[in-house]
Design a protein around this nucleic acid. Structure first.
Lengths: 224, 224
DNA sequence: TTATTAATAATAGTATTACTATTAATCAAA
DNA sequence: TTTGATTAATAGTAATACTATTATTAATAA
């Protein structure tokens, strides 16, 4: 079976669909690498242009600014994650195994697809951990939110809520618990890597640690 | 009883102690207001200087850059919070009421002190909610961390851990649960204010909602 | 095939931001 | 009252974020 996965990202996010041209695809691919290397604050369109031998103005034809570019990347990530939640968890026998697998998905890089033109999933995961909150922790969040650009995050959250509710229909905070799982996966992975005193991660594998912590947190929260 | 509270902030954070001069104190006070009004990304030293009728260069004599200034403000906040955790929770009868009061502290603005020269606590709390993660979610986190500038956060986290451990000595993740409580208080307050679909907050008071959610999360996690 | 139009990218800017070197003013000690 | 030291203000520069215009290429019609 040969198929390719494509997530249509809300067209309000870009000026010109980067999926539509080779240059557009290269811009996003290289942006992911460069945001990872420099961090979002030091990342600029000029540096990206130099990196890939094009011009700043060409990049501005695709994205209004670097914030929108990051939003595009995260929309893609959230959409892919929702896809995985829907199709990878469905076949599982019960809500318990679904939730266990969910935490595995949230704490690991996205699984590699067959697609040979593809983003580097490990690097993408690191960006999600370090940079994702910067797309909504801004003064303009209200106006940005008006074009439904956070819909993939909300949809992902709603999907997880469904599983939580099927596990324990009496639980009162399914959406908050979902967003807390997502955010805590990121913050605990970041802390265990960079500020380990804020965690209980020892010398062991950080991902495995966060997985254990979140599994404990989730199932205890859902105890009747 | 007349006393004044002073938290000595790590001197690696500033170039010149803003507590030492009237101008320094005004800079920090006005910075809190302006960061709140503009958001950290749009906040600049030039705008702050104009706001308070001084010069950009004068501000640069106190702080290397705006990131250090935010770090200073957050160090003050974390130190104050640790103080409250130590002295306000100590007299309480048992670990259960300590933890309940802790969540109240984390979800509400800091209590007002007698000090008539003082920061606006409501605005400070909003900054903590929206901007605090930006001080560590940067590429330079390792070098920044080397001067112990996150110590107040780690200390606060350690204090909370102690209470958690006294409540349930068998619990395996006291530090991670502490940092998760702090971070989740911020993210859920932010979401309930701006992206409510990521939470289960209804029309009710957002602070009360987050308080209920965190209380549920905490005590269920600590069930034996 | 050539001329016309449309799409795209590159050049060359500007305004703002982040930061610094230098100068001016103020104050305290000798 | 002079010297020295501390402080703030002036006047910059380099980098960043963004845009208007021009040049180039590709597509289509005559």
């Amino acid at each position: 079976m040969d198929y390719s996965l494509n997530f249509k990202v809300n067209e309000k996010i870009y000026l010109r669909d980067p999926e539509g041209t080779e240059l557009g695809r290269q811009i996003v691919k290289n942006a992911i690498d460069l945001i990872y290397r420099l961090g979002f604050e030091h990342f600029t369109f000029k540096k990206l242009a130099k990196e890939m031998n094009t011009t700043e103005a060409s990049i501005y034809r695709y994205f209004e600014n670097k914030h929108r570019m990051l939003l595009y990347i995260l929309n893609w990530y959230w959409s892919y994650m929702e896809y995985l939640v829907v199709f990878q968890l469905q076949p599982l026998a019960n809500s318990k195994s679904k939730l266990e697998r969910l935490i595995e998905l949230l704490t690991h890089p996205l699984p590699e697809s067959e697609d040979h033109f593809d983003y580097n999933k490990n690097i993408l995961h690191q960006i999600v951990i370090s940079e994702s909150s910067k797309v909504y922790l801004v003064k303009e969040v209200k106006e940005i939110n008006e074009n439904a650009v956070f819909k993939p995050y909300k949809d992902l959250c709603a999907r997880i809520s469904e599983i939580i509710q099927s596990h324990n229909p009496a639980y009162a905070y399914p959406h908050s618990l979902s967003s807390t799982l997502i955010e805590t996966a990121h913050s605990q992975l970041f802390f265990s890597q960079h500020l380990p005193k804020l965690t209980d991660a020892g010398t062991e594998n950080k991902t495995a640690f966060v997985e254990r912590f979140l599994t404990d947190l989730l199932f205890k929260s859902l105890q009747p």
